[in-house]
Design a protein around this nucleic acid. Structure first.
Length: 778
RNA sequence: GCGAAAGUGGCGGAAUUGGUAGACGCGCAAGGCUCAGGACCUUGUAGCCCUUACCGGCUGUGGGGGUUCGAGUCCCCCCUUUCGCACCA
């Protein structure tokens, strides 16, 4: 989709622009010194790749995981296509930020919801993922435990099923509210005197932008159908309403309104004078009410009982309370508590009542316990040209027929008259559309919708293992050997798009016997964004779509790839956003220059660069081991900016050795060799060159990472802070491993410390080995 | 509103997870080298105070309390910023 939009904007065929972008990107990779095995290159827009998208689609179809279904879907008016729920987050199109509207359309869905529980449970195993992403996925899947309950509508001879997480509040359900999209709406309003007005309102709500309809401050708006439903537990009639805040595709698109115990229902009930019946009490705060109840004054309506028995309990709080002195509550009580006015369930706790009421609903055949998820099925149809054709054929006689596997790939015609406006260009390509039915051989039409691009990225990581395979998406044994991915890196924007789809796909592939894992990415790292101050002073993310990206090409041309790499790594922690400015580049640039100078001076002096240190345990050797240790640990921890800092320190030390006539040449040589090797990931070009100058015969890529001896990677002399009553008063140098006694003696010999100890008595001594001595005095 | 993360010099950022706050770099200042320098090298650089100088002292990690011999780090309250979620019944 982005490729197509770009192509439309520039009037270039997406294939041309995509291939040009790939070429440009490859050139940038080369200029940066990025290492990549180009024999493993994958191009998802080529038939050789999307063939297998189509193959996966057919497999999903066989398993009943790909279905064509009519439902309310998100439509982006600007991109002129439907979008998956994940791509319309917050009510706007993920690509162009245009507010989306709901449309009732028949589309292809992948049943990701079948794996909702597995996707949720699997999150617990993702210890090496950022908590944030795990939480976002958990919230997106949105598991809710509750019950389904059926509310009869005698006038229609129908019943409406609702889902609730609070079946314990059912006795307080004083209205049934349906989404405007609910299937029963037309019949409910058919006999209403203002039928046309209501129908027009329903239509207007349905056509409203999601952003507007779901806005935080959007007013609740509804219409009374005039039809009555029956609360299955109180047996009382309750009104049936239609309201804008009821979401069509969550639960059943209908809910029981319990105004006393739900803030949204409360707000709605207040506005439309719907009765508010309190059925949950926090016992500790309202014992009086309970006592009245316990006196035997059973005010609760009986289950399935005749009308009238609950009259006294019902209070219409929209009017001034006339008797009993009970004022209208100011807000809903949404907490847990104990049931009141709930027939046989009165006195029960919320939690036990939930189970009992759910169980009774099940036994009466009107619902029962139910778990629901916020997650919706993945809508993959796109009314766009530049994508993988969905391999389906529509036959008048046989309906939807899959393209036989042997006929794959269904190739996207190169010559569609795409404009981005006025429908899918594929519909205009007769040679593509017109085909024959694989079942009956009669004339038929191809599906012209293409697949969501996230289909490509759901399994691409496995294609890298076997990019040329023309018999299968990838070789199963190679996948078994190499996958899952050890370390995945990507931006947070993928948290609930790509990463959720890929997790779903891994489960599908496991069920297909292609892989043995369920979680495709063992560890995940979210890098921060590079931001930039816009001319208006706002800090915004640098991106292609904003057109505010800074090209590093000129900087690389001027300073060299190594300096730019070192500088970018030195900007700060990689998981954090960083504001772009090329001001600080001189630091890393100078550093690399100093390393070069040090090596060149050493070689020019005629010293043997391959020489080994004369002694293993010297102060200089310890510095070297410490540097190797620190830099190695920094890399392991993705702390590249401190790796650069530690290399700078080590570089200064190395330059000092080169300039020091008393330095031992073997140690100096070893120091330079270590420095150059450690520098390789940051400055590969320079370090390879200096490695050669230092007599290296193999690339640093194959000659191995420097090792350190943990015993030598510590200073021999420890500087110990000396505190007197918790305040630092001096520092002593002691041999590593010194005893407390030795340290106290050394500290007392320090004049400043001695002054603070004068006339005092040491009441307590705290000794942290090799680090700190605290003398508490009185 | 709910949830999460963060707040450290002029700036980017360190701090072995309770143990010398400010590593490393930018910037700035002084000096050296130089015909010159936006090149390079050296030194200094949290604030305040005492001192000719040295030695030193006090304060300091968003604000306020607390725990501790000791707090940037742990606990409680508050403020600010950023990011998620936000009618999901």
């Amino acid at each position: 989709l982005p490729a197509e939009n770009y192509a439309i904007q520039k009037g270039i065929h997406p294939r041309t622009s995509t291939l040009a972008n790939i070429a440009a990107m490859k050139e940038q990779f080369r200029a940066w010194g990025v290492l990549y095995d180009w024999t493993k290159e994958v191009t998802t827009c080529e038939p050789a790749y999307y063939h297998w998208n189509q193959w996966f689609f057919l497999k999903l179809l066989e398993k009943g995981l790909a279905v064509r279904r009519k439902s309310a879907v998100n439509w982006c008016p600007s991109c002129e296509t439907v979008l998956a729920n994940e791509q319309a987050e917050g009510g706007v199109c993920e690509r162009c930020k245009t507010p989306v509207v709901q449309r009732e359309l028949e589309q292809w869905f992948l049943k990701i919801t079948d794996y909702a529980e597995s996707l949720l449970a699997g999150l617990d195993s993702l210890g090496k993922w950022p908590d944030k992403v795990v939480t976002m996925q958990r919230n997106w899947i949105g598991k809710s435990t509750g019950a389904d309950l059926d509310f009869a509508i005698p006038a229609l001879g129908e019943s409406v099923r609702v889902f609730t997480t609070r079946p314990d509040t059912v006795f307080g359900a004083t209205a049934l509210i349906l989404a405007p999209e609910h299937a029963l709406v037309p019949r409910l309003i058919a006999n209403h005197p203002k039928k046309d007005e209501i129908a027009a309102w329903v239509t207007s709500v349905r056509n409203q932008e999601r952003l507007e309809r779901e806005a935080e401050n959007a007013e609740k708006d509804g219409r009374d159908t005039g039809v009555k439903a029956v609360n299955p537990f109180t047996g009382r009639e309750i009104p049936v309403w239609i309201a804008n805040f009821v979401i069509a595709d969550y639960g059943t698109g209908a809910l029981m309104a319990v105004p006393a115990h739900d803030t949204r229902d409360f707000e709605f009930a207040k506005k439309y004078s719907i009765p508010i019946v309190r059925v949950i009490e926090e016992r500790s705060k309202n014992t009086e009410h309970l006592l009245r109840k316990e006196d035997g004054e059973d005010l609760a309506p009986r289950t399935g009982g005749a009308s009238g028995s609950g009259e006294a309990e019902e209070r219409d709080h929209s009017k001034k309370s006339s008797s009993g002195g009970t004022d209208a509550p100011a807000a809903a009580y949404t907490g847990e508590g104990f049931l009141v006015a709930s027939g046989p369930f009165s006195e029960k706790s919320s939690s036990s009542a939930r189970e009992l009421i759910s169980a009774e609903a099940a036994s009466r055949g009107i619902g029962g316990p139910r778990i629901r998820y916020r997650l919706r099925d993945w809508l993959i149809s796109r009314q766009r040209y530049w994508g993988t054709p969905i391999p389906m054929i529509r036959c008048e006689k046989d309906g939807w027929v899959p393209v036989p596997e042997k006929d794959l790939p269904v190739v996207l015609p190169p010559d569609a008259p795409f404009t981005g406006k006025g429908g899918n260009p594929l519909e205009k390509v007769a040679s593509f559309v017109n085909t024959t039915c694989p079942e009956c051989g009669g004339p038929a039409r191809r599906e012209t919708d293409t697949m969501d691009t996230f289909m490509d990225s759901s399994w691409y990581y496995l294609r890298y293992l076997d990019p040329a395979n023309d018999r299968a998406p990838f070789d199963v044994s190679r996948a078994a050997e190499w996958a899952p991915v050890d370390q995945y890196i990507g931006g947070i924007e993928h948290a609930i798009l790509h990463l959720l789809y890929a997790r779903f796909f891994a489960r599908v592939m496991k069920d297909l016997g292609l892989v043995t894992f369920e979680e495709p990415f063992s560890a995940l790292f979210n890098q921060g964004m590079i931001t930039r101050q816009s001319p208006t002073g706002r800090v915004e993310k640098m991106s292609k779509s904003r057109g505010n990206a800074v090209s590093l090409d000129p900087l690389i041309a001027e300073k060299g790839a190594d300096a730019v790499r070192a500088f970018v790594l030195f900007l700060g922690p990689p998981e954090k956003d960083a504001e772009w400015s090329d001001e600080g580049i001189s630091g890393p640039e100078r550093f690399l220059g100093r390393v070069r100078t040090a090596v060149e001076r050493f070689v020019a002096s005629g010293a043997d660069p391959r020489r080994e240190p004369a002694a293993a345990d010297t102060p200089a050797a310890r510095v070297r081991h410490m540097a190797v240790k620190k830099v190695t640990q920094d890399f392991d921890a993705f702390s590249f900016h401190t790796a650069v800092a530690h290399l700078m320190e080590f570089g200064t030390h190395a330059a000092g050795l080169v300039g020091d006539p008393k330095a031992e040449p073997g140690e100096t040589a070893a120091t330079l060799r270590s420095l150059v090797a450690l520098l390789h990931p940051i400055a590969p070009h320079l370090s390879e060159e200096l490695n050669e100058k230092l007599g290296g015969t193999k690339s640093l890529l194959v000659s191995g990472w420097p090792a350190f001896d943990p015993k030598l990677a510590v200073e021999e002399i420890a500087s110990v802070a000396v505190q007197v009553s918790g305040k630092v008063r001096g520092e002593i140098k002691v041999r590593r491993g010194s005893t407390e006694k030795e340290a106290v003696a050394a500290a007392a010999a320090e004049s400043v410390v001695a002054r603070w100890l004068e006339g005092k008595q040491i009441v307590k001594t705290i000794w942290v080995q090799d680090r700190l001595l605290n003398l508490v005095v009185k």
